[in-house]
Amino acid sequence: MELTSLLASGAWSGSVLVVLLLGAWEFSVRSGAVQSHSWPALSSVLRSLASGLQAQGWSEIFGSTLYRLGCGFTLAVLSGVTAGLLMGASIRFYRTVGPTVEIFRVMPIPAIVPPLIFFLGVDDPLKITVIALAAFFPIALNTLAGVRAIDPMHLLVARTFRMPRSKILIGIQLPSALPYVFAGCRISLGIALIVTVVTEMIAGSEGVGYYIVSMQYAMRADDMYAAIILLSAIGYLLNRAFLGIEARSIRWAREIEGRRGE
């Protein structure tokens, strides 16, 4: 019964396309249509992926990448939410830092990697700073938008029950802005992953970005594609995990949204 309803819903058609594309990849090599060192068969890519898993090679490569991603993203969440709350709470603070934020926001972050190398070297301090910087802006600006979108009724209620002004920011404005905060974090997580890999490609000697570039230099196409496949799988899982946390943390927002539509 479940299978038929799954088939009827059409939810399977997305997976079919993925399987078809992978099949076409395998076929293009097996049939001899493409003969190139840069284009190995999917099966040999999977073989090198599996042997890497057995040899613990991947965990070392991805471990250092995920460590930097985690540090940079966490820093961005903490500083971004704080900055967004302060900008939303104080007009004076917003006027002071607003123009600076606008200038930095539009700058392509990888462009500042070369100058930053002067100060931070090419290792973790550089990379974590760059990741945090790139992920900071969507979180800060979304938090700001969330604080501004608060229902004025919430503030009246807080005041009539004599909530101290100093507590309103954390007690009322932050929770009511959470749907915006999560939206910003979701955008930033994607950006952080991209920037992590890019910084590893530009500078340093470890991580998956560095690995992909090295394998390309070494003409080891199997290993290069294996790393790319694993990287997309990890990106997919990270996003899935984040959506799960989000759905659980702000279930109320979705419920209210649904009820307004009724």
């Binding site: 229902d151 009724m153 919430h154 009246l156 209620v157 009539t160 029950f161 009322i172 929770p175 009511s176 959470l178 702000i250 109320w252 927002a253 419920e255 209210i256």
Partner: peptide
């Protein structure tokens, strides 16, 4: 204390 008309907005949904 003041009790408002719009209960759906005056209660905190979280």
């Amino acid at each position: 204390v003041c009790l408002f008309q719009q209960y759906s907005r005056s209660l905190f949904p979280w």
